[in-house]
């Protein structure tokens, strides 16, 4: 009798554990599937040439710069923890969160960031440029 009760208790627990594991697996798969896709930003050709003429300009999360023949976009997200870097008064970029510094072409010069600002070459697509980051 008692062994039967024990068995039923084990069964309940085992089923509950399996349910929990299955739910966790489903949640895990759903969360994995929600990974951000590589982001594409479309910029009009005019905006790009304007940014280049200006010596570089912000466009959303990007900083568009480079020679007119091969324009490039720098991501303005600090490579340390993702705060938006701002143009520094001394030139280049500075991160307002932990003080990382980058040169105008995105190379890291100081602070906790280890990598340079990520850089995307712009691809010509019809009348616009596409930056993929």
């Amino acid at each position: 009798m008692s062994s039967r009760r024990d068995f039923l208790g084990e069964l309940w627990r085992g089923t509950g554990g399996a349910l929990l594991a299955a739910s966790a697996l489903i949640l895990h798969r759903a969360l994995r599937a929600a990974a951000p896709a590589p982001r594409e930003t479309t910029l009009s050709a005019e905006a790009v040439s304007r940014a280049i003429a200006e010596g570089g300009a912000e466009w959303g999360d990007l900083f568009v710069t480079g020679p007119p023949s091969a324009p490039a976009a720098l991501s303005l997200a600090c490579t340390h923890l993702g705060c938006r870097v701002r143009p520094a008064s001394s030139g280049g970029f500075a991160c307002p969160c932990h003080g990382s510094r980058f040169t105008a072409d995105g190379s890291r010069t100081a602070g906790p960031a280890r990598a340079s600002l990520s850089r995307a070459l712009l691809e010509r697509r019809g009348a616009s440029w596409v930056a993929r980051l």
Binding site: H28, L31, A77, H80, L81, G82, C97
Partner: peptide
């Protein structure tokens, strides 16, 4: 983003 990046650095389950 700071919070988000910190969570991401947790091994195995970071992104989740």
């Amino acid at each position: 983003p700071v919070w988000s990046r910190i969570a991401e650095t947790v091994p195995f389950l970071g992104p989740e």
